[in-house]
Structures are given as structure tokens and as C-alpha cells.
Amino acid sequence: MTDQELQALVEAVSARYFARPFRHQARFNSRLRTTGGRYLLRSHDIEINPRHLEQHGEEELIGIVKHELCHYHLHLEKKGYQHKDRDFQELLKQVGGSRYCQEVGGGRTRLPYRYELVCEACQMRYKRKRKINPARYRCGRCSGKLRLYELETAAKQQG
């Protein structure tokens, strides 16, 4: 599906389920990772994650479009357009949009911690996401020297 086809789909869904026109841009955004789509408040545009169409089909895509159109129309009417607002929840239920989208694979999978600092004296362990210089720090328990280990290399050696 191209951006033009997505634009036509969004306009058709808006006319059919909301009885209001969609006058802004709808496009695919492949940089979206954890969400099915998003409504941009400043430009009133809608961006859709293309992986949802690939993995879950057009029915899931229409549910996401309905969800984003709820944000769109309520924001333009100056009503409660956020997820927590009753106006949003009621309109979403009326049009049959999806509250949550299905999970999409293919994203980056990372270990939560990449580095580990180990105290040479008491063996206290500190996990870190970012690399730091262990010479600048001491153990919080015993003030011993710290040694830096990279966790991903340990996982690669075991597997």
C-alpha cells in the first residue's frame, strides 16, 4: 500500500464512520517502533506504522486509523482527545476502533544492561546501560576498585 492509497483509506474511513472529512495528510512512517500510529497535534497529520499492515492485515490497520481519527476529530472540535478523556473513550467505542494495537516484531532487541561493574574487594555488582570509566568511580559499599565487563560478549561466548 502506498501513501496515496493510505490517504484514500483514511478519507473513506473518516467519511463512513465519523461523517466528517479528513482534510490533512496521512502517511506511513517506518521509524515508528512501539505504536501502531500517531496523530500530530501541530500539523493534524496522521502517521501509521507500515509493519502493522504487513504483519496483521488491513483489518488491524483500519482499527488503528479509527483510533487516530478519534484523536483528530475530537482535537479539531476542541473536545477531550486524550486517551484518558471520556469523549475519546465514547467515540472510540461508537466507531469500533481499537484501544490497543497488536505487538509488532522486527524491532531492535537489546539487553536491558550492556555493562557490569564488579568491585574487586567485595564482589558487589553494578549494571549499567552506558559504558563508563571505572577508574573514576569506587564501590559504594566498601570503596574498592571497580572492574568493567561487557555483558553482550559474555552472552555470545555462552551461546
Rank of each mutant, 00 (worst) to 15 (best):
R33H: 09
S43P: 01
R42K: 13
F28D: 07
G57H: 11
C101P: 02
H44V: 09
R110A: 15
H83I: 10
E59P: 00
Q89C: 04
Q102L: 09
I62H: 01
E116M: 12
K131G: 04
K131S: 10
L53I: 04
R38Y: 05
E90G: 08
I62L: 12
I62N: 00
Q94L: 04
E77A: 15
E103L: 03
R23C: 08
D85W: 08
R114Q: 15
H56N: 08
C70Y: 13
G36F: 00
R110M: 06
Q82W: 13
P134S: 11
G37K: 01
G57W: 06
V118P: 00
R125S: 12
D85F: 08
E116K: 11
G105P: 06
T34E: 07
G96N: 14
K93Y: 09
R23V: 09
H56P: 02
N133M: 02
E47F: 03
R114Y: 02
Q89S: 08
H67D: 12
Q55N: 02
I132T: 13
L91W: 08
L61T: 00
R23I: 10
R38K: 15
L41F: 02
C101H: 15
K78T: 06
G96T: 05
K127P: 06
I132F: 01
Y126C: 14
E58T: 10
Y115H: 15
R130C: 03
L111A: 14
I48R: 13
R114W: 04
H52W: 10
E59V: 12
G63K: 12
K66P: 00
Q102C: 09
R27G: 03
D87V: 05
D45L: 05
P50T: 06
